[in-house]
Amino acid sequence: MNISALSDPATSQSSATQIAHSKLRELILTGELAPGTKLKIDHLRKILGTGASPIREALSLLTSDQLVVRHEQRGFSAAATSSEDFAEILRLRCSLEGMALRQSMENKTDEWIESLVIIHHRMSRLQQSRSDDFEREHKNFHMALIGNCDSPLLLRFCNQLYDLNIRYRFIAGRSIDYKGRKVDDEHRIILDAVVAGDIDRAEDLLRSHYETTGAFLKAYIK
């Protein structure tokens, strides 16, 4: 480690901004900062235990993620939610992730397949144990499915859409009644189609997976 960097004000400011950005992002995604909530700097300073400048910079960064709205002369607020917004996110996810999955499978390698199998196994184990780490591994699995597409911009859009979608699921609540739906089985058959190299089936299964989840969430979105 470069010791001189520890006393560099610019480095310290950047680190504080990154920490504030990460914490605020989590609070908004999980609904702890509810949609439409006015994000007052003084209040956020107490929550995060950091200065006003890193918070302002973090809020500005979150506007590009569509999680925060800047109001001219009136500060910031957490982005609102709506059934129309959710429907658009769902359509875009199905379209863009379907495209990315096809490209990933066309670039199929043994290393990529092995990585997918390992991530799926780890995710399934965490789901069965009801671990708090499941959500992190769930995202890792979905991003790994499309991560072999050699299109950084497409992956960036897909990553952003995943977060916008997961926000709705957190807001709806973790205890949604899926009426006997076996989500782990859905993940497994998607993986099986990818391993088998059946591009059309894999894309159809991924789209169905998202649309089925979307149908459950719609009842909780206002």
Rank of each mutant, 00 (worst) to 15 (best):
N2T: 09
A5D: 15
A5Q: 10
L6E: 12
D8N: 15
P9V: 08
P9R: 09
P9Y: 01
A10S: 11
A16S: 15
A16Y: 00
T17A: 11
T17Q: 11
Q18G: 12
Q18K: 12
Q18E: 13
I19W: 03
A20K: 08
H21V: 10
H21S: 15
S22V: 10
K23D: 12
L24H: 02
E26P: 01
L27S: 12
L29M: 13
E32G: 04
L33K: 01
A34W: 02
P35F: 02
G36Q: 00
G36R: 03
T37L: 08
T37R: 11
T37D: 06
R45Y: 01
K46V: 13
K46E: 15
L48F: 05
G51C: 01
A52P: 05
A52K: 05
S53N: 12
I55Q: 02
A58T: 09
A58L: 06
S60K: 14
L61R: 14
L62W: 03
T63M: 09
S64W: 09
D65E: 15
Q66Y: 15
V68D: 05
V69A: 08
R70K: 13
H71Y: 06
H71T: 11
E72A: 13
G75K: 01
G75S: 05
F76L: 07
S77A: 13
S77G: 00
A80P: 01
A80W: 05
S83H: 10
E84C: 03
E84S: 13
E84Q: 12
A87H: 04
R91F: 08
L96M: 07
E97I: 05
G98Q: 00
Q103I: 10
M105K: 11
N107Q: 14
K108W: 01
T109K: 02
D110N: 12
E111H: 03
I113L: 14
S115W: 04
L116S: 03
H120C: 05
R122P: 00
M123W: 01
S124W: 00
R125G: 13
L126H: 08
L126W: 03
Q127W: 15
Q128K: 13
Q128S: 11
D133E: 13
D133T: 11
F134N: 08
R136K: 12
R136G: 08
N140R: 10
F141Q: 04
I146N: 00
N148E: 12
N148Q: 13
C149N: 09
S151H: 13
N159A: 11
Y162C: 05
R167F: 04
Y168G: 00
R169A: 09
I171R: 00
G173S: 08
G173F: 03
S175F: 09
S175I: 06
S175K: 11
D177L: 01
D177R: 03
G180M: 12
D185Q: 11
D185W: 03
E186D: 15
H187E: 07
H187W: 02
I190M: 04
A193R: 02
V194G: 06
A196N: 01
A196M: 00
G197M: 05
R201L: 14
A202T: 07
A202Q: 06
E203I: 14
L205I: 07
L205S: 06
R207H: 10
H209T: 09
E211W: 07
T213L: 14
G214S: 02
G214M: 01
A215G: 04
F216H: 05
Y220P: 02
I221T: 06
K222E: 14
K222P: 15
